[in-house]
Design a protein around this nucleic acid. Sequence first.
DNA 1: TCAAGTTTTGACAACCATTTTCGTTTTCGC
DNA 2: GCGAAAACGAAAATGGTTGTCAAAACTTGA
Lengths: 125, 125
Amino acid sequence: MSTRREAVHQALTASSGFRSAQDLYADLRADGSKIGLTTVYRALQALSDSGDVDVLRTDEGEAVYRACDTEDHHHHLVCRVCSTAVEIEGPTVERWTAEIGAQHGFTGVTHTVEVFGTCAECSKS
Amino acid sequence: MSTRREAVHQALTASSGFRSAQDLYADLRADGSKIGLTTVYRALQALSDSGDVDVLRTDEGEAVYRACDTEDHHHHLVCRVCSTAVEIEGPTVERWTAEIGAQHGFTGVTHTVEVFGTCAECSKS
DNA sequence: TCAAGTTTTGACAACCATTTTCGTTTTCGC
DNA sequence: GCGAAAACGAAAATGGTTGTCAAAACTTGA
């Protein structure tokens, strides 16, 4: 893993939430790095290809990334104020989606599940 | 509801799957309509604001729309080949996501759940 | 240590879906 | 019909993301 890719990965790990490529670029530049925006995109592409980071799309269509603890299949509970995310697992949903697919004769069934809310911290204000 | 908006709504209803604004624009023009791309976007915006159509984002970040039978909260089982979608409901997921949120002290919990697969028809080939 | 080849990088331009702008056309109430 | 208000559409602007390409950095073999 090249230094630049490491830097991007580290910048991501420094946050507990989902960050956009532009966010990370701004962070890195603010830290004095001379990294280019193109390289940030390339690093994130590579990291997501290798399964080291998770990607999802905001309602506005922007791609946001997160360095998760586990590489196993999981979902997220995301705070819509501070964007902090908690990794969640759930045999319940896995079973449910598989059943739904089977019931309608679908094969190769996969799913996307994301839960949003306001975290305890942010709920205070 | 204006004529143009109706035309867009109808074009959407003609399909059982999710379509992008660009798709619908192409369809309408192919049918001889002189509608403009801007108007298609405006119509879709209005339709989704009023809850008449559902929106979701593809992996590429493109917005796709669907005219669903029910206006109630529901999810979709989407064929990744022909994009046909089946509307699904599930007390199971609703309950599960609410519990997950509560467990972590999150308030105002919502969720997005989409199931993908290859439909029976498309599985044949 | 040095030169040639390979990989990585980053400035800039290109892309493409979507939004804005703005002048024109259509619709509607009277 | 008439005029105000809403809807339209062509073209330009926006903004995230990707492609291009020459320069910089790292490898390798001698």
